[in-house]
């Protein structure tokens, strides 16, 4: 049986197709597409991806409405069972609003929408999402966001740094994120949220392929399990 992934679409998601294409390119299996109003996830999922976009028009706070949509109750349960969950950009915002990840994503410190490639340093190369990278490896991945400024209180930051839960850091802090954090893992290591878009760096025509290793890592982790 192939790699059984789901990509969730909220009203206003706009990177869901890119995410599905990236997963299929790496795994060879097309992901199941799941709608925010679905009450249930398909059985036997190996991977769940929450894509980028502007779910519910960023009403109230980015990700706040999506975090309370019917499918999120199921995703929280799946995450608690250990199913890998990746949230990119708006997906990261949804995961923090759903309290699956610590902190919050605030308006960029420079107030502007940022859309360009950024350099990232791989901090933790042992997670199921990052084992295909080397610790300290420098990669280039596109960002495209207005609310990517990661904030958490100092105690929380100390804890997530101490536990090795910072997956990626910005080499040049583009949005004001505390301690340059670009991607963070949950305590169990099966939930990753990141502002940069790995699904936009999986083909030479994208201008880079540094995102491939993230999807390859997740697939290999499953095969090794």
């Amino acid at each position: 049986m192939g790699f059984r992934a789901a990509v969730v679409t909220f009203p206003g998601s706009n990177c869901d197709r890119d995410m599905a294409v990236a997963i299929e390119k790496v795994s060879g299996s097309a992901p199941v597409r799941v709608w925010h109003g679905d009450a249930q996830l398909p059985d036997g999922l190996d991977f769940i991806a929450l894509p980028g976009g502007f779910s519910y028009g960023d009403y109230l706070r980015s990700g706040a409405m999506a975090a309370n949509s019917p499918i999120m109750r199921e995703i929280v349960r799946a995450a608690e069972r250990g199913v890998p969950v990746l949230g990119v950009c708006n997906g990261f915002q949804v995961l923090t609003e759903a309290r699956l990840l610590p902190g919050a994503l605030m308006r960029n410190a420079g107030q502007t929408f940022i859309c360009r490639n950024v350099g990232l340093k791989v901090e933790n190369a042992q997670s199921i999402f990052t084992s295909g990278y080397e610790a300290g490896q420098e990669i280039s991945i596109p960002v495209a966001h207005h609310d990517g400024n990661f904030f958490a209180d100092n105690d929380t930051l100390d804890r997530i740094e101490g536990d090795g839960r910072v997956a990626f850091r910005y080499m040049e802090n583009c949005n004001g994120s505390q301690r340059d954090i670009a991607g963070v893992l949950n305590a169990s290591g099966n939930v990753l949220g990141m502002m940069p878009h790995p699904e936009r760096a999986v083909d030479a025509a994208h201008g880079g392929t540094d995102g491939l290793a993230l999807f390859e890592s997740a697939i290999r982790s499953l095969a090794d399990a």
Binding site: L60, A104, A152
Partner: peptide, 9 residues
């Protein structure tokens, strides 16, 4: 607590 405010920030 559940929706109107994000008590993290």
């Amino acid at each position: 607590e559940k929706l109107l405010a994000n008590t993290v920030i």
